[in-house]
């Protein structure tokens, strides 16, 4: 048996040109229901937290809860958790690019009155 044959034997999927595409994964209604209840609970939590005076932490908590909700929606309702690496990487790259643009623009606003505070 050649090295190549052993290698192929260890990775039977290599013979399949289609293996890079994620197989269809059907999310069940039970999973959607859990996601739904978690989202509703987090909405109630963020609303309640807004009425407690936590100084600077109010904004941080509200945004942290919003980010958690969004990640849950993206992963499960939008099926990203079950997509191929190509799609995951593309979404990640796009979001990263967005953050780069926000940061680069913010450097301007932060440095305009440099040393005058």
């Amino acid at each position: 048996m050649t090295d190549q044959a052993i290698h192929d034997h260890a990775n039977p999927s290599m013979h399949e040109p289609r293996s890079e595409q994620a197989q269809l994964h059907i999310v069940t209604p039970a999973q959607y229901l859990v996601v739904y209840l978690v989202l509703i609970a987090l909405t109630a939590l963020t609303c309640a937290a807004a009425f407690v005076d936590l100084k600077w932490a109010n904004a941080v908590i509200a945004l942290a809860i919003a980010c958690t909700q969004v990640v849950i929606v993206v992963l499960f309702d939008m099926h990203v958790a079950y997509q191929s690496r190509l799609i995951k990487l593309t979404i990640g790259a796009g979001v990263f690019m967005f953050l780069v643009m926000v940061t680069m623009t913010l450097t301007d606003y932060i440095s305009r009155s440099w040393g005058m505070w």
């Binding site: 909405t43 963020t46 609303c47 807004a50 109010n58 904004a59 509200a62 945004l63 919003a66």
Partner: peptide, 8 residues
């Protein structure tokens, strides 16, 4: 939008 406009 909800936390940014209504809550924080």
């Amino acid at each position: 939008l909800y936390p940014l406009l209504y809550l924080i």
